[in-house]
Design a protein around this nucleic acid. Structure first.
Length: 729
DNA sequence: ATGGACAATGTTTTT
DNA sequence: CATTGTCCAT
């Protein structure tokens, strides 16, 4: 144990052996933060005599939780019984099931994923007679989710415009629907936990006393709900140990608020603050580029990253003719680097901003015959057949779950179409029960009261399915998840439904078998554990270790990983930074941090790739290099030549490095204004925000920055050359 | 009730 | 361009 601590650098040691009280560890990339966290847990247990039962450690992903658990086990030379180590969401789900008697739902609640949540928003809109066209479900859902992340309940939802008013009503209805389905969405897991700890002093005290030590990974990614519940949980002992890096905060859009770091310092003014700056991952050449990029981010706590790994190879910059040539360059480079036999395919990662960009890369890899694995994207749990099977099991587990019922009631088709289902729902509403419960009742007793409100043919179909469901529910507690799943699949002839003999059908059945293998891991009867696992596992978590293949993944998915060789593709304005961030300065900073995260994944070699043209809407168009490339001093970069065929270049493209002042070379970027076009008081029109009034404007960096107030939207800061603003007369 | 043809619509990141 | 939804014919 002690020799393990001696291997740590002084800052790491200080963090691991920090005494009681709040601790904030600001950990640069590759600075060994997981090591610090796990060593601290081992230290608390092994040296300080803390019982594992009294320790809580939370992460954001299952993968991180798993890795931490393994490393703690290694450090201690055995498992730590009773240690609570898991994701925020899983930990909250467990707590809520245990304390469900204090809450307005049952302990067998189901957890709705993104798709289910969207379905539910649609239903709420329909219930309120609101038009989906006018109020886009994803937009409304996003507003609801943001409110939940900030712990705002429907009645407290601030209304400043008609749209807010709509959201407030939908939000309210949405929550009612969740409760009547005995379901929670992802946000609810955090919201209800925070609410419970806030409102119920005895529950709060119970857990606050229990958790003598709380450790948090990726603290910069916490949202308000998470921060609040951490505060409640640590209210008794105040031993809150958080590790994070504001420079790697890339989930603002999901409610993450890196200002929690500032809040922490304010709320725990006595906190010890420890900076981890030594990097054990990358060469200095890579770190220098990383720092050049991130230093453009204002108002940050400056960290000086250094390594003892030596200078290493210069970072390579490559300008491709178009996105197809980008992919070609990646494939060629991998081929030549592996040809010497010193590197394996699993050493390579190719990163991009948007999932759509993976397509061309995949094609290039396929054509070159290089194996690759794609992280995320074609979500396993998002596949129709997987969702179907899970919906069946969820329905058995909780017949009130209407979203799942809707999904499977006619898949495979069994003569229950939209109209029949509607009559079932109507009747259920009249009888003040749920459609699922009514269905069960009809299965039990075909002559059920009032059932004759439905015509005989439809009724027969419903009775049939109800009977099936009734039989499943009767055995659900005595069968293992695997047995239950097999029973359902067989009863509904699911295989013949999806496996139509085509290749695609075979694939679908293969996926079901894959799910079956997962179910086989659960030995105990009962569906809770299995369903919770499939609800809270993300596709990122399915990324396996050391197969002999290159990895293709988004920059977001890359966080927390490392690779000897990294390619970052699509370094063009509009892609990275993404065009949807242009008019929001905060979002632009986040794009920059995303780039930084990508850079710092590389251990030995880094390739930065941009192109002159990019395919959008099916047409190839000229694009500007990413403005983030301007942040990097030339002498930190090497310019690569095409590895195989020379590509057509247009005139001056060759010497771009000396003058890639985008505004000159790329015609698509409007010329910089020399004087102000917008004056305070002017009325303007924006394609998405409508009418607004100019409050202020100024010239900056050769562009005009305009502050506009839009009715119902609020104040927006826009870059004149990018925002499609029209001046109204 | 189901499947096909056509049209519109819209492109970020995901626990 | 490619996916998603809508309408229509069976």
């Amino acid at each position: 144990m002690m020799h393990l601590i001696e291997k740590l650098n002084p800052q790491q040691q200080q963090a691991v052996t920090a005494g009681l009280g709040p601790v904030l560890v600001m950990a640069g990339p590759g600075s060994g933060k997981t090591r610090v966290l796990t060593s601290r847990i081992a230290y608390l247990i092994g040296e300080m005599g803390v019982r594992p039962y009294n320790i809580l450690a939370v992460t954001f992903t299952n993968k991180a939780a798993r890795e931490m658990a393994n490393r703690v086990t290694d450090l201690l030379g055995g498992v730590a019984p009773g240690l609570t180590l898991g994701t925020f969401h899983a930990t909250c789900a467990r707590l809520l099931r245990r304390e469900a008697q204090h809450l307005p739902f049952d302990d067998n609640f189901v957890i709705y994923d993104q798709d289910d949540q969207l379905d539910l928003v649609k239903r709420a809109l329909a219930d309120l007679n609101l038009d989906e066209k006018r109020h886009r479900p994803p937009v409304v859902h996003n507003a609801i989710s943001n409110a939940k992340n900030e712990l705002i309940l429907p009645d407290a939802y601030p209304v400043q415009s008609y749209l807010d008013e709509v959201v407030r009503r939908v939000y309210k209805r949405y929550q009612e629907l969740l409760l009547s389905n005995n379901a929670l969405d992802f946000d609810d897991l955090l919201l209800w936990t925070a609410y419970l700890l806030e409102e119920n002093a005895s529950v709060r005290e119970k857990y606050a006393r229990r958790f003598e030590h709380i450790l948090v990974d990726e603290f910069q990614d916490t949202n308000q709900a998470q921060y609040r519940l951490l505060r409640h949980l640590s209210s008794f002992h105040r031993n809150l140990f958080v590790v994070g890096d504001a420079d790697q905060s890339i989930y603002r859009w999901r409610g993450a608020d890196y200002r929690n770091v500032l809040r922490f310092q304010k709320d725990f003014a006595d906190a010890q603050v420890i900076l981890l700056e030594q990097n054990y991952r990358s060469t200095q050449a890579i770190l220098d580029v990383a720092m050049a990029v991130i230093d453009q981010n204002p108002q940050r706590i400056r960290k000086h990253l250094f390594t003892e790994r030596g200078a290493g190879q210069k970072v390579v910059l490559f300008e491709a003719y178009d996105d197809r040539k980008e992919a070609e360059f990646v494939v060629d480079t991998i081929r030549s680097l592996t040809a010497r036999g010193r590197m394996g395919l699993s050493d390579f990662a190719v990163m991009y901003r948007t999932n759509a960009q993976s397509r061309l890369l995949e094609e290039a890899f396929l054509q070159a015959g290089i194996p690759y694995k794609l992280v995320g994207a074609q979500r396993f749990y998002g596949r129709r057949e997987i969702k179907d099977v899970i919906a069946y099991l969820r329905l058995v587990h909780n017949p009130n779950d209407e979203i799942s019922l809707t999904r499977v009631i006619n898949a495979p088709t069994r003569g229950i179409g939209e109209k029949t289902f509607l009559s079932l729902r109507t009747l259920a509403l009249r009888l003040e029960t749920s459609p699922g419960a009514l269905l069960l009742e009809m299965g039990r007793n075909p002559e059920a009261p009032a059932a004759d409100a439905i015509n005989s043919r439809a009724r027969a179909a419903l009775v049939n399915f109800g009977d099936l469901l009734r039989n499943w529910v009767a055995v659900k507690d005595s069968l293992t998840p695997l047995a239950m799943m097999e029973r359902v699949l067989e009863d509904v002839h699911y295989r013949s439904y999806i496996d139509d003999g085509t290749d695609e059908g075979r694939d679908r059945w293969e996926n079901v078998l894959e799910l079956r293998r997962l179910a086989a891991e659960f030995q105990q009867p009962g569906l809770d554990a299995f369903l919770e696992r499939v609800a809270l596992v993300s596709d990122q978590d399915t990324l396996e270790g050391t197969t002999n293949a290159a990895t293709l993944l988004t920059l977001h998915a890359a966080k927390g990983l490392e690779f000897p060789v990294v390619f970052i593709t699509g370094l063009n304005d509009g892609t990275l930074p993404h065009s949807r961030s242009f008019d929001d300065p905060e979002a632009m900073l986040e794009e920059c941090r995303l780039f930084y995260v990508g850079i710092t994944r590389a251990k030995d070699r880094l390739y930065l790739i941009f192109s002159q043209n990019r395919t959008a809407y099916g047409f190839s168009e000229p694009v500007a290099p990413s403005r983030f490339l301007d942040y990097i001093p030339y002498d930190l970069l090497d310019e690569a030549q095409p590895t195989r065929s020379r590509q057509p270049r247009k005139g001056q493209g060759e010497r771009r490095l000396e003058r890639w002042d985008a505004a000159e070379v790329i015609p698509s970027r409007p010329a910089a204004p020399v004087e102000r076009r917008y004056q305070p008081g002017m009325r303007v029109h924006h394609p998405s925000w409508g009418e607004g009034m100019v409050l202020n404007s100024k010239l900056q960096d050769g562009d005009e920055i305009v502050d506009v107030h839009f009715a119902g939207v609020g104040l927006k800061r826009l870059v004149a050359s990018l925002a499609r603003l029209e001046i109204k007369v």
